[in-house]
Each structure stands twice: as C-alpha cells, then as structure tokens.
Write a protein that binds this DNA or RNA. Structure first.
Length: 563
DNA sequence: AGTTTCGGCGCC
DNA sequence: AAAGGGCGCCGAAACT
C-alpha cells in the first residue's frame, strides 16, 4: 500500500483518489468514492494526502471529526516554488500551474475575499477552480521536479511540508476557536468604558473624556478626529504635525492627558468592544480564521476579528473550560536567536546558546552592561534603523558580532539592488520592479534563473513606490522575520504531532507564541512537548547549531495571568 | 451611494 | 530620545 495518496473532491460530496509512487506519478488506478469523508477515514494508513488546497478539503473532514497526519498543499507549494523561481507575480492556483505546464492560457487567481464576521465556511468561498485528479497529479509530479531543481532541494521540500502542516494546524484552530468568555469580556468593557448607551454612541467614560478634552481647549473638540485635534492645538498655539501618541506625549497642555486616555479606550471600544463581541464570539469561542503564509515574510495573518492584535486588557476574556487549562508559551527573544542561527556568527551563537536573557549577554559583551542599548542595537540591526543612537549602537554591535551584522547588511544591499532575497528555508522576498538579476543572492546562496521584470505593485501593495532604502530595510528584516516564520512552522508541526494522542489542542498562534487548551492533568505533558518541539524545530530548520530556543511557559486558566 | 485611501493604534 | 520591519482593523475623509 502506498503511503502517499492524491485526492480531489468530486461532485455531490464524493472524491477521486489515487496512490502515488516515489516519482509522484500514480502507482495505481484512480478510485472513485461516493463520500470524501469516508474515503479518508477508511484509509488511516495514508501518511500524506496530496490535494489542491487544504482549505478546500479539510474543513469538511474536521466537521466530521476526521484529522489527517500530513498533507501536501499543491497551491502552497506552487506559491513557494514560483517565488523561488523569481516568478512571484504569476498566478499561483493549481489551474494556473496546469496551464503553464500544458502551454494553455493561464487563468488569473480569484480575487481575495474580505472579512465577514462569523462566516465559517469562508475558506471555500473564493470559488475553487476545479482541477481533475489526473491533472492535479501532473502538477504535483512537476512540482517534485521543480523542488529538485532548486539549489537546496531539501530545504525547499521541508518548507513546503512545513507550510502544508501549517495549513492543517490553521484548519484545526479555525474549527476549534479560542475559548472566550463573553461575560468576562463585558465586565472588562464596563470597567474600562462605563455605561453603554442605546443608539451606539460613545459610552459614559469616553463621553466624559470628550468633555474633559473640550474643556481643556475651551471649545467643543472631537478627540476621535485627528484633523479636529490638530486644529485645536494650533488654536492653542501648539503646532503638531499629527495626533500620534508619541508626538502628543511631548506636548504640555491640559488636554493631553484626557486625550491619550481617550485614544486608548476609543481603540478598545471600536476594535474590541460590544459589537466585536457580537460579531466574533459564539458558544464560548472566538471564531477566528487563520491564513497561513498570508504575508510576504511567511507570517500568518487572520481574517476578521483582529485575532493577532488582541489588546492585553482584553485577554482577560480568554478563559479555559472548567477543569481545563491554557498552556501559554512565548519564545524568548526569538529574532536575535534566529539571526544567530542564520548568520552563524560565533559570538552571537554562543550567546544564543544559553537560555538566559540574551540582551543582557549581548550588553555584557558589547555595551558595558547597558541592556537597553544592546536591545536597541539588535532590533536596529534587524529592523534597519538608520539614524540617531541606533547607528552608534549598531557600530558597537558590528565590532563584536561582525558576521551577524554583515548577514543583514548583505540582505539589505541585495534588496536595494533589486536582487532576490531568501529565508533560511528558501521563502523568497520579492525583487524590486524592473530589477535585473545579477546572479548573487542574499539569504541562502543559489543559482537562480534570471529574474523577470514583473509588476510587483500588484502583489505587494506600495512596494513599487517605495525607494531603494526602504526596500533595503524590508529585505534586511525579511531574512530574520521570515526565517523566524520558517522555524515557527516547524515548531507548530512538531507540537501538533505531540498533542495528537492527547485531548489537548492548539488554539492560538501569534508569530512566536502558542496557546494550547488542555485538561489540567495534561498541562505538564504539554509544557514538556513545547520545549521538545522548540528544540526539534531548531535542529530541523537550522541544522546543528549551539542556538537554543527557550520558551517562557505558563499554565493558567486565564490568558491575562500568563505574564 | 459605494469604494478606496488615510490616520491612528493594537499586536509581534 | 526617536522612528527602523511585519500585519489588521476601524471610522473618517477622499475619491468615483
């Protein structure tokens, strides 16, 4: 029995299936089954399901209580491979891949869907272009060859597998939802915002603050309108360019204090207030929708509900079921550790080989013990700080950790020059518009075909219009943030595996943080599983290095108690 | 009236 | 002290 099977949904809930050989081609006849769920459920020996897109198949399986161990998502692979080939502007659907393969007209990708509160089946909505099984397998077999054609096939294969695993995790988390107490959420809102008035107007506390701001200016001011606030300050003889917090904070005026408080509370009211609760929480769960690989760097995004931007005060509403716990695990200083692993800087790897405070260790070596300076320098190197004390600190960092700084500097230069830049596992950063490939690349070295001049504006909004220095900063950050995302995918995949025999389930993932919801008696097992998964992910992603990836973990009933 | 962009701020 | 990366979301403003 083959361990890899291809599957495509057929009409009326059925499915077509075929076992695959080592070359990715069919190792047996196509089987037609009347029921897709049964077809999968009755083949537990299949180690990896190959399908067009997890979002097309998996929600249906999960609704029927069927999970699969592994999958290969053809459209995920297509996206990664196109990037690798310097063809990121081309349509990435399986139908498009097939058309390229056969020389037909290439259909454009269906448009992105916008958020819609509470829509569970939304992963189905962008009308999947049906590709029959035989043709799907053609695309798959070709993708195997394209993986082989890359300079580091094992890395790109790992990335495809990891991102495919990510789609499974996302599907499962979308199905389970995040435990959420609407009651506690309402208590928090009432505490912060006060009475809620009929008609949807400002709640009591915001109305009071509006009055305070107005009184301080001596006229009626709407604190939620930046233009109004700028004008009011001007009339008071104070010039401000904007009403951004950091700019207002520097101003001395009686309106500042109530204004800043207003901004904080207003934000909670509009983004995570009563109407949010109404829209996104059902049956004790926040129904979020993860989109793996939704960003250029490989970080995930969520669709609707702002699930990755939950304000800290609102986290009080995230509460485990009775008798259950939340295991909240947060990677410690992930980005500098990733920088150590990808640059192989001996000094930084040594520092990142300890579980102790990384910034303190860096400061002991390069900043005479000043931790704040050390942290600023490291983040400046990663984010591309170009002015102020950041530059001075960066110079100090460069003296002690030359390879680490050179790594991100190289990426920045490559970005400025419009060359391809890749993460450790080979996710590709888009080149600049009209850039001709000059052969060398940053990130993992490889021999790529020439980069075509493509209109990047289409798939990276704002990208074409930014200047080359901005592209440099983008590329500099990309290699670190993106390689961190590579690692995080492997972490999720490993953690998912070790939770598979437990009642525990992953319910939240935010770049470098996970939450597992589990029976209280499983909590210790889960904590250990997270540590093991982090180590395994580090080895699988970056190979054998001294770098460790420690987590701060907390077993709590309420998310807010984790920190 | 409907759609897109902007300003501001939440998270990492 | 000041301004560098990635996102999503909201209402208002600016458009068509």
């Amino acid at each position: 029995m083959s361990d890899r099977w291809a599957l495509a949904p057929a009409e009326e809930g059925g499915a077509e299936l075929a076992p695959l050989g080592p070359d990715g081609l069919p190792a047996g006849p196509v089987v037609k089954e009347p029921d897709l769920v049964t077809a999968v459920r009755t083949r537990p020996q299949v180690a990896r399901w190959v399908w067009r897109a997890t979002g097309e198949v998996y929600p249906r399986l999960l609704d029927a209580g069927v999970r699969v161990e592994r999958c290969y998502d053809i459209e995920v692979a297509e996206n990664l491979l196109l990037g690798h080939e310097g063809r990121l502007g081309e349509p990435r659907s399986a139908a498009a891949a097939l058309a390229r393969l056969r020389g037909g007209p290439v259909p454009p990708d269906p448009p992105q869907r916008s958020a819609e509160p509470g829509s569970q089946s939304s992963l189905f909505e962008p009308r999947p272009v049906h590709v029959p099984l035989e043709q799907l397998i053609e695309v798959y077999a070709d993708q195997q060859r394209r993986h082989d054609a890359t300079a580091y096939p094992e890395r790109v294969r790992l990335l495809t597998a990891a991102e495919s695993a990510g789609t499974l995790v996302a599907g499962e988390m979308n199905t389970s939802g995040l435990p959420w107490s609407a009651e506690v959420h309402r208590e928090v809102l009432h505490e912060l915002l006060g009475e809620r008035y009929a008609g949807g107007g400002e709640p009591k506390r915001l109305a009071e603050l509006t009055d305070e701001v107005s009184a301080a200016f001596g006229r009626r001011v709407r604190p939620d309108l930046p233009a109004d606030v700028v004008k009011a300050f001007a009339q008071a003889g104070i010039k401000v360019k904007s009403t951004r917090r950091w700019e207002i904070e520097a101003v001395e005026h009686p309106a500042v204090k109530p204004l800043l408080e207003y901004k904080t509370l207003y934000r909670i009211w509009v983004a995570h207030g009563w109407s949010w609760l109404q829209d996104w929480v059902r049956d004790g769960r926040f129904r979020l929708e993860y989109l793996p690989g939704g960003t250029v760097t490989g970080r995930w995004v969520t669709n609707g509900g702002g699930a990755l931007q939950i304000p800290k005060v609102i986290r009080r509403a995230v509460i485990a079921d009775p008798g259950w716990r939340l295991v909240v695990a947060d990677a410690d200083q992930m980005e500098p550790r990733v920088l150590a692993a990808i640059s192989r800087d001996p000094g930084l790897m040594e520092v990142a080989g300890r579980a102790t405070d990384l910034y303190q260790s860096v400061s002991d070596r390069a900043f005479a013990g000043n931790r704040d300076q050390a942290k600023l320098a490291v983040l400046g190197a990663v984010y591309g700080q170009t002015s102020g004390d950041g530059l001075k600190n960066l110079a100090a960092l460069r003296r002690r950790f030359p390879r680490a700084v050179a790594y991100v500097d190289d990426a920045a230069r490559a970005g400025e020059e419009g060359r391809l830049v890749r993460t450790w596992l080979g996710r590709t950063c888009p080149p600049a518009v009209g850039a001709a490939d000059s052969g060398e690349e940053a990130g993992i070295p490889q021999d790529a075909p020439p980069v075509e001049a493509v209109d990047t504006e289409e798939w990276v909004p704002g990208y074409a219009s930014t200047n080359s220095r901005a592209r440099g900063r983008f590329a500099r950050n990309f290699v670190v943030q993106g390689s961190a995302a590579d690692w995080a995918l492997l972490l999720l995949a490993a953690l998912r595996r070790s939770c598979s025999g437990l009642a525990a389930e992953l319910v939240f993932f935010q770049h470098d943080e996970v939450i597992v919801h589990c029976p209280a008696e499983e909590a210790d097992t889960v904590v250990a599983a997270i540590r093991e998964a982090a180590d395994l992910a580090g080895r699988l992603t970056f190979g054998e290095t001294p770098v460790r990836f420690p987590f701060t973990t907390a077993v709590v009933e309420c998310y807010a108690d984790a920190k």
